[in-house]
Nucleic acid binder design. Structure first.
Length: 343
RNA sequence: UGGGGCGUCGUCAAGCGGUAAGACCCGGGUCUUUGGAAUCCGUAUUCGUAGGUUCGAAUCCUACCGCCCCAG
């Protein structure tokens, strides 16, 4: 059996993925990323998991790349009124590439991770695809991967449910079985990222206005808001107010009622094309993680941008977030949401 | 001190004689490998105080207390 690298975070998913591969007879090398400041507990958990599995383990220090390519740009994006997608960017430009490089340097033929996603063939082409358990699928966060990397990846959990994984880990007595699901952005400290932001830029306070331009109040920093947000505005009104959009130039937060949040026209840029599968499924788009795809009425490509008309309006579409296109379970492309009139 | 206005949940606030809306904040739950995001539930037996009118008052009347504005 081929020598394979497996990404070990110390959590239940990656540990069980490794176990499954080992059971299948692979010779494994566990790899863990050191992302910098809050990663010590994870490193220890990963080392323990490797020890329990009886596999070799290396730590790869990528804190510089992580910081320069993910942390800093994300914080700056927040300050520009965008809502970045650090996890998707991290998978594509830090996690997977660095792990795969390290894997190759150790003579491994590929890299396995504990993501809930699949790789499916259509015609002669390999596609990234949603996990069998669509509700837990993480293909969304992998949809910025360079398609040339797909043939070297393995997702052993793609046909498992989270429940199965946890139950197996528990019955095997793996200590990772008790680990909590990770959640929230991994680099945000408990105090919030306001403090982190101070290191690169200043918070940008400004006015809170309604869509007619009437000033209703003020806020402490644009980075505290995202489109669709309700809490944190501190304004009392006859009906709840939501953030409709963030105007970067003057750091203005525009608010309005829930019904003003729905939209059918959505624009994306930096389109990444994954190709055309053989199935004839209609194209749907996910405008955020943990939401079902929405059918597209029309899709217009122009340069690297894409203009969509949705069949059913969507609420709280936030510029900066990733849009991921599907045909059936196959991922066919992705782009970053933007508003043409913001330019 | 005269004249006017106002006192309803921690905050903003509806109510205008028929038995306390709503929002914010806060607390708790759900969701979540992006969004200090979303979502759900909870939160004043009581309306500045004391009397009075009424079957019934936060709503009307009287007094007192407090705050604000205009005069001076």
């Amino acid at each position: 059996m081929a020598r394979l690298a497996v990404a070990l975070s110390g959590g239940v998913d990656s540990t069980l993925a490794a176990w499954l591969l080992k059971e299948a007879g692979h010779e494994l090398l566990g790899l863990t990323l050191d992302l910098g400041s809050h990663s010590q507990p994870g490193l220890a958990a990963a080392a323990k998991a490797a020890q329990e599995l009886g596999i070799a383990h290396h730590v790869v220090d990528v804190h510089k790349a992580f910081h320069n390519q993910i942390v800093r740009p994300s914080l700056l994006a927040y300050n520009q009124g965008l809502t970045p997608n650090p996890c998707a960017c991290c998978n594509a430009s830090v996690k997977i590439p660095f792990l795969l490089n390290e894997a190759r340097a150790h003579g491994c033929t590929g890299l396995a991770t504990g993501h809930y996603a699949r790789l499916l063939n259509s015609g002669s082409q390999l596609f990234l695809a949603e996990a069998l358990d669509a509700s837990k699928s993480q293909a969304y966060f992998l949809a910025r991967l360079n398609p040339h990397l797909l043939p070297f990846l393995h997702f052993p959990l793609g046909d498992k449910t989270k429940q199965e994984v946890r139950a197996m880990a528990l019955s095997l007595g793996l200590s990772a079985a008790a680990s909590k699901d990770s959640q929230d952005c991994c680099f945000v400290p408990p105090e919030g990222f306001g403090a982190l932001l101070q290191r690169y830029d200043k918070p940008r306070p400004g006015a809170i206005e309604n869509s007619q331009g009437k000033v209703l109040g003020s806020h402490e920093g644009l980075h505290n808001f995202t489109v669709g947000q309700r809490r944190g505005l501190g304004l009392s009104a006859p009906r709840p107010l939501y953030v409709l959009r963030l105007r970067a130039e003057r750091a203005t937060v525009v608010v309005g009622h829930e019904e003003e949040l729905w939209q059918s026209l959505v624009y994306g840029r930096q389109y990444l094309d994954y190709g055309q599968p053989m199935n004839n499924e209609p194209v749907s788009v996910r405008l955020r993680y943990a939401r079902q795809g929405i059918m597209c009425k029309s899709i217009t490509h122009k340069g690297g941008t894409v203009a969509l008309e949705l069949q059913t309006p969507s609420k709280g579409v936030a510029p900066g977030q990733l849009m991921v296109f599907n045909q059936g379970s196959m991922v066919t492309g992705s782009a970053f949401i933007y508003r043409p009139d913001d330019e």
